[in-house]
Structures are given as C-alpha cells and as structure tokens.
Design a protein around this nucleic acid. Structure first.
Lengths: 158, 158
DNA sequence: TCAAATAAGTCAACATAGCTGACGTATTTT
DNA sequence: AAAATACGTCAGCTATGTTGACTTATTTGA
C-alpha cells in the first residue's frame, strides 16, 4: 500500500501557507491603513489596475463578493479619486473601471512591497524555483477556475 | 544594471497566491458552515489540535489576535465540546487547551480536505517540488518570526 | 415598437470577526 | 502583603461580508 496517499496530512504546508499568506498580506496593510483603506480596497484597486476598463460585473466575478459589498469600497475609491468610471463605448449601461494617476501610483507602491517579499524569497532559492512555485499555486486553485485565472494573469501590461 | 531587481513586479505570483489561498481555505468552509463555525474556529481548533496543552497566551501569540476576539470563538468551541480546558499542573492560573475526541475527529476531517488539495497539486509536479514549496512559503514569513514558526511546525505528532 | 432582460447603483438589516478600554478573579511572584 | 500574571468578561466600535427589495438607464428580442 501507499504510504503517501492523497489524504496524508500535510500539516507543515498547511501551517506554512497560513503564516506566509498572513505576512504577505500584512505588508500593504500599513500603507492602506494610513489612507483609511483596508484589504477590500486593495483587492479592488489591484484588479482594476491590472485590468483597465474592467466591467463591474467582471470584477464581482473575480472577487466573488456581492455588488453591495463591492459598492461600499468602490464608492470610497471613486470618491477619493483612486478609481474612475467611464460609460462603455458599446454598451453605455456599463461603467468601465480605471485607476486614476493617484490610484496607479498607490497601487505601484503596494505591489512593490509584495514583490520585494517574493523576490527576496526566490533569490534565496535554487534556480527555477519560481516556476515550481508558480505551478504549485496554480494547481492549488480549483480545477474549474484555473483557465480563467490563467487568462486573467496572462495579460502582462507592465 | 539588473533587469530583475528586488522590486520587479511579480503580478503573476501575487495573484496566484491570492486565488490559491482563497480556494485552499474554501474547502473547510463548507464543513465549518454546517456546524455554524467560521474560519476563526478552524484556526483555533487547528492549533490546539497540533499543540495539545497549549496555553491561552501562546495561542494568542500564534494567531495574533486579542483575547477578546479569541474568547468569543473559544467559548463556543468549549461549549460545544470541541475543546476542553484543564488547569495547568505547575501554574493553576493557566487553562491549558486540548481538543476533545469530537474536536480531534472534526479537525482530522478539515485537514484531510486541505491535505488532499495539497497532495493533488504536488503529485502533478516534478520530484522534490514539495521541498521547494516548503522553502518558498517559509521564506515568505517575516524573517524575525521564522524560527518560532519552525519550532511550531517542527513537532510532528501525527 | 414595446416588453423583457441586463448593468449598475442603492437602502435597510444582519452576521462574523477583528479592535479598544475597562474591570474582575484567581494565582503566583517578589 | 503588594504587585504581577493568566485568564475571562462586559460594552461598544469597525470592516467586510451577506440577503432581499427596489430604481434607473440602456439594450435586446419577439
């Protein structure tokens, strides 16, 4: 029989994942806090920045939250000029989302912090580790969502 | 100059980390929900299970939440017989935490789900990938906390 | 062309899980 | 005996998620 079947407990990775994610998200929290924002604002800002002209309904699909939840943080981000909305050219019911200059700048600061943490980690590891890590994280995503995430990540506008 | 300096944006890994963690924590949510529990309960249950006889103050240190926050979920877990408390033998002010049989069983169900996801991912990857992944996650933790996390994970009671 | 569907926003009420501050009780330390 | 410690608890606040109901503007389709 198999000593390492698919249900063998992986407490080490379970716990490492928990602590790693906590510290990974902890970096931006400091900057967000200074502006009275939280993680919800970060997520919205990030995905709008990465997908300029995003439809509200698509953002809801990415974040998997209700429009009421989104509405609250989105309103703040628009009011404080981090995000702007433009009616769709083809469908004027849509309010396509874009980061303003201020929003783009702030977003860059946040990703810089997180990229630093990632790059520091990778730099201490064997060649090719980033590809392994990417593959692992990708395979941890629900199978039926992988293709959509791949599509989302595929566009490298920066 | 370096094309890949330490601040090069890593949008791919940032986003993969987000989606991977979301689905990773999503598995247990279903079971937790059936019992009226949330992720907070899961975390408490998990770390008590993994560290039988844990002091309340040490649990607070691991979770980095306030005792008021912990108190709420801990009380529920004790009331519903998933966790029990015993006065410390040396210091009777302490209420050392243990999972009950019911708690241990439930905890096993939850870790099984998460381990399945992890093992499925690893099984699709090259030999030795789990070591790379472990190393990456470890290095993503704040430098000054790594040793303590290592200590915590080091004990493999299962 | 007009009715139905769609994209988005909004109001109200609620739940979870974090927070601060203040205070109580039992026990140990000094 | 006083101070410190471990833990618990009360009250109230915040952030971010949820449902359900409803409005407005616009597009689609019978």
């Amino acid at each position: 029989m198999n000593k390492l079947d698919s249900t063998s407990p992986r407490f080490d990775l379970i716990e490492l994942f928990f602590f790693a994610y906590r510290d990974f998200t902890g970096d931006p929290d400091v900057l967000l806090d200074e502006l009275g924002f939280g993680r919800a604002h970060h997520r919205v800002l990030h995905f709008v920045h990465r997908n300029p002209g995003l439809k509200v309904s698509d953002l809801l699909g990415i974040l998997k939250i209700t429009k009421q939840s989104l509405g609250r943080v989105l309103k703040q981000l628009v009011d404080e000029d981090f995000i702007c909305q433009e009616p769709g050219a083809l469908d004027r019911r849509q309010r396509l989302l874009y980061t303003t200059e201020k929003g783009t700048e702030f977003c860059a600061q946040l990703s810089k912090l997180q990229s630093q943490r990632i790059n520091k980690a990778i730099s201490l590891m064997p060649q090719g580790s980033d590809e392994i890590v990417r593959q692992f994280l990708y395979l941890m995503i629900d199978e039926n969502e992988r293709s959509e995430v791949a599509r989302l990540i595929g566009k490298q506008p920066d």
